[in-house]
Amino acid sequence: MKNLIRIILFVGIIFMAGCGQSNENKGNNEDNNADLTPVTFALDWTPNTNHTGIYVAKEKGYFEEQGLDVEILLPGEVGVNQLLAAERADFGISYQEGLTQARSEGLPLVSIAAVLQHNTAGYASPVEKGITSPKDFEGKKFGAYGSDLEKAMMKTLMENDNADVEEVDYITTGDSDFFVAVERDVDFSLVFYGWTGIEAELRGVDLNMVYLADFSDELDYYTPIIATSEEMISTDPELVKAFTHAAVKGYEFAVEHPEDAAQILIDHVPDLDPDLVKRSQDWISPRYQDDADQFGTQEQERWQKFADFLLEYEIIDEPVDIEQAFTNEFLPKK
C-alpha cells in the first residue's frame, strides 16, 4: 500500500506540470500582489456553488486583507487529496469520505471547515419511476460509479428500510450525464440536489429525491469540506488561520447575500449557466451553515460514525484517528 501511495504522489507531481490551470488572470496583478503570500487552492470539480465563498473572498479582497494572494486551480488529472499530500496545492475542496480513506492509506490530510453542514446527496429519479424510499429501489436499475462505498451506502439505506439490496440492478455509468442516463439506461442515480436537482427544475424535469441523511445518521457526513495537509498546519499555522478566516468570511457573505454572491461566481466563471448559478445559490446559501452555530464547524461524533461505517464495510482497512482528521481550531472565534 505504501508503494502505491508513493506512485500516486509521483504521478501527481508529473501531471501537475500540465494541469491545475487557474481561471484567474495574474499577469496584470503581479506588482500589486508582491507583498502578499502566494497560496494555491485546488477545486475538486468544475466551478459551482460549492465554491462560491472562495470566489467571493477573492473578489471582495478578504484574502488580501489577510495578506494572501490566492490562486484558484481548476481540476486536472490529479485529485485534490493527492495534490495536497504532495504539497502541490496548499488548500482545496475535498470530502469527508475521500479524506477519511486517504488518511487510512497514509495521506496526512486535515479538514479545516465544512462547506455544507449536512449531506445534500441523494438518489434522484424522475417522478414517473415511482421511487420515493429505499424500498422502491428493488427491481430498479441504478446508475453507478462502481465503487465499493457506493454499494455500502445503498445497502445501509435499504436494510434500514427492510429492503434487499440484491434486488437492485447495478449499471455502471461513471460520469455520464444524469439526464441522459435516466432517460436511456437507468431509473435512478446519486446526485447533489444543489446542482443537478436545480438543473432538473430549470429543465422542467420533476424529480423524487431519497436523501442519504434522511435514512441513515452515519451517512450524514460532511461533503464537501475545505482541506489542507498536516505539513501546512505544522509549518505555518498562522497562514492556515488567515486563509480559513478569509474563506469563512466569503461563505458568510454568500449566506447573507446569495444574489450578489452568485453574480460574483458568474463574473469569474462566465461559461457557467447564469440561471443555474442563481437558482443553485438561492437553494444552497441557507445550507452552508444550516443549524450550526457558525459556518464551517464540524462535530467529532459525525466523523467517528462515518469512519466506523467505512471500517465495518471494509472500505478502509485500519481505524482512522478522527481527532487528527479534522479541526475547528482555525475557524473564527465567535
Rank of each mutant, 00 (worst) to 15 (best):
L212I: 05
V210N: 00
Y251L: 08
A242Y: 01
D214H: 13
E231D: 07
V240M: 04
T244V: 08
H245Q: 11
E238W: 00
A227L: 00
P224T: 08
T228Y: 09
Y222I: 06
Y211G: 03
A247I: 08
Y251Q: 10
A242H: 03
T228H: 10
A246P: 07
E231H: 05
F215T: 07
S229C: 12
A254K: 07
A227E: 07
V248G: 07
A213V: 12
A254L: 12
I233W: 04
Y222F: 15
L239V: 13
D214T: 11
L212W: 00
I226T: 12
Y211R: 14
T223F: 11
D217Y: 07
E252Y: 05
F215G: 01
Y251S: 08
F215S: 04
A247W: 03
K241Q: 09
Y221E: 00
S216I: 03
M209F: 12
S216H: 00
D220K: 13
T223H: 11
P237D: 00
A213Y: 03
D214E: 15
A246S: 10
A242S: 13
T223I: 12
P237F: 03
E218D: 15
S229R: 06
V248F: 06
Y221C: 05
I233N: 05
T228G: 11
E238I: 09
A246I: 05
Y251M: 08
E252V: 09
E231M: 03
A254M: 11
T223N: 15
E218K: 15
E238V: 13
A247E: 07
K249Y: 07
T244E: 06
I233F: 07
F253K: 04
K241F: 03
A227R: 02
K241H: 12
T223K: 06
G250K: 08
L239T: 14
V210L: 10
G250Q: 09
K249L: 13
E230L: 04
E238Q: 12
Y251P: 03
A227Q: 07
I225T: 15
M232P: 02
G250A: 11
Y221M: 15
M209T: 06
P237H: 00
I226Q: 07
I225L: 11
S216R: 01
A254W: 05
T228K: 08
M209E: 00
S234L: 04
H245I: 08
A246F: 13
A247D: 04
D217M: 14
D220C: 15
L219G: 02
L212M: 12
E231F: 06
G250M: 13
Y211V: 05
A213H: 08
Y222N: 05
V248E: 03
S216C: 09
S234A: 14
Y222Q: 05
Y222C: 10
T235F: 02
T235E: 13
M209A: 06
Y221W: 07
E218F: 10
A227T: 04
H245A: 06
A254T: 09
Y211S: 09
F243E: 09
Y222V: 09
V210A: 12
D214Y: 05
E238N: 13
S234R: 11
I233R: 06
A242T: 04
E252P: 01
M209K: 04
Y251T: 10
A227D: 10
F253H: 12
T223G: 00
L212F: 13
S216Q: 00
T235H: 01
E218A: 15
Y222L: 11
A213S: 12
V210T: 11
Y221G: 01
M232T: 14
D217A: 14
T244M: 10
T235I: 14
